[in-house]
């Protein structure tokens, strides 16, 4: 284990950034997100970012390939580019856990999404454990330890006036070795953090929900939803996207862009039929996708308990309260 004095954090990031591009959690123009490190950036280390770091691996808008057309002829050229290695510094354990699900979606079941894969392979994750979760956090209800991220390359946690760092993968060890000049050897174990105060009952939830598709409770749950995309766009595990064209004259780009199951257009078919015509079906899809369909398909959590949707839903349609309400249904 290594330690880093808090006073030296800026120098540590600067040195690391001179070797490899580093993304850090910052507050910028009134909103928090991950952005490239610079000396004058405003680091946010006391809470998680509103924009999830999934954007570094799966951006909201991403070009897939370009094309040229000339009368009847056409050609295409892939725009998939393997980035230079980069470091994501300060990802919280919930968000690191979300990468597990994104990996399952983008890299398994017969097809690998090359655009995601190239970024995922080049990204080194330094997770920052949470000594004290926020009141909207409930990751430990899903089995995530707020102070540990097993999938991170390096686990880091605050301890009084310093940070303690432990490499968890080969890439992590190499990075720490490269930065050894900034670090001090330290004995002992990484400290544990406090548990979350917000809780949901997780065990058996998937099985409990399986027969609830037709339950009238969905008509109640959906009432206050305004069908905006806030929850889905801020969610670290939501991955749905649309594929679109941007044509300018004889050339153009095929790109993908986040989409949301909250929008009526999402499932609207060319002939006019919509299998999810009202907000009841759309709200049900969002919650069952997280809580039943993803666990069924990937034997994996569909929610990591980061609490962003609780924090930012304009009408406080809170997933933990929805889960409690669903548990009450016989």
């Amino acid at each position: 284990m290594k330690s880093l004095s808090k006073a030296n954090l800026s120098q540590f990031l600067e040195t690391m950034n001179s070797k490899v591009r580093v993304y850090v959690p910052v507050e910028q123009d009134g909103v928090s997100r991950f952005a490239p490190w610079s000396q004058d950036c405003q680091l946010v280390l006391d809470r998680n970012t509103i924009n999830p770091p999934k954007r570094l691996f799966f951006p909201q808008t991403e070009e897939l390939y370009e094309y040229q057309v000339d009368k009847q002829d056409a050609s295409v050229k892939s725009l998939a580019v393997k980035p230079e290695p980069f470091v994501v510094f300060g990802m919280r354990p919930c968000d690191v856990q979300s990468l597990k699900l994104l990996d399952d979606v983008f890299l398994t079941k017969g097809y690998e999404d090359i655009y995601y894969k190239q970024k995922r392979e080049q990204g080194i994750v330094i997770s920052l454990g949470c000594p004290e979760p926020e009141e909207t956090c409930f990751c430990d209800s899903w089995g995530v330890n707020p102070a540990r991220a097993p999938l991170a390359d390096i686990m880091m946690i605050e301890s009084e006036d310093k940070y303690l760092l432990e490499a968890q993968t080969e890439a992590g060890e190499k990075l720490l070795a490269d930065l050894s000049g900034q670090l001090t050897d330290q004995s002992g174990e990484l400290p544990e953090g406090k548990p979350c105060s917000l809780k949901v009952k997780n065990e058996g939830l998937m099985e409990h929900l399986q027969p609830k598709f037709e339950d009238p409770v969905w008509a109640e749950i959906c009432r206050k939803c305004i069908n905006c995309g806030t929850c889905t766009y801020l969610c670290p595990t939501c991955y749905c996207f649309d594929i679109l064209n941007r044509t300018r004259g004889k050339q153009g780009v095929k790109y993908r862009c986040y989409d949301s199951c909250m929008y009526p257009e999402y499932t609207l078919m060319a002939g006019g039929h919509n299998p999810r015509p009202t907000k009841k079906e759309r709200v049900r899809q969002r919650f069952l996708h997280k809580l039943q369909y993803i666990p069924e398909r990937y034997q994996e959590l569909g929610c990591v308990g980061c609490g962003r949707c609780i924090k930012k839903c304009p009408v406080n349609l809170d997933i933990t309260r929805v889960i409690n309400q669903l548990w009450e249904v016989e």
Binding site: F106, G110, I243, D259, M269
Partner: peptide, 17 residues
């Protein structure tokens, strides 16, 4: 169903899981 990717990634053509 409405489909975009065809390879089980983009999400919209699900019926349950």
């Amino acid at each position: 169903m409405r489909m975009k990717c065809g390879i089980g990634k983009c999400g919209r053509c699900n019926i349950g899981s």
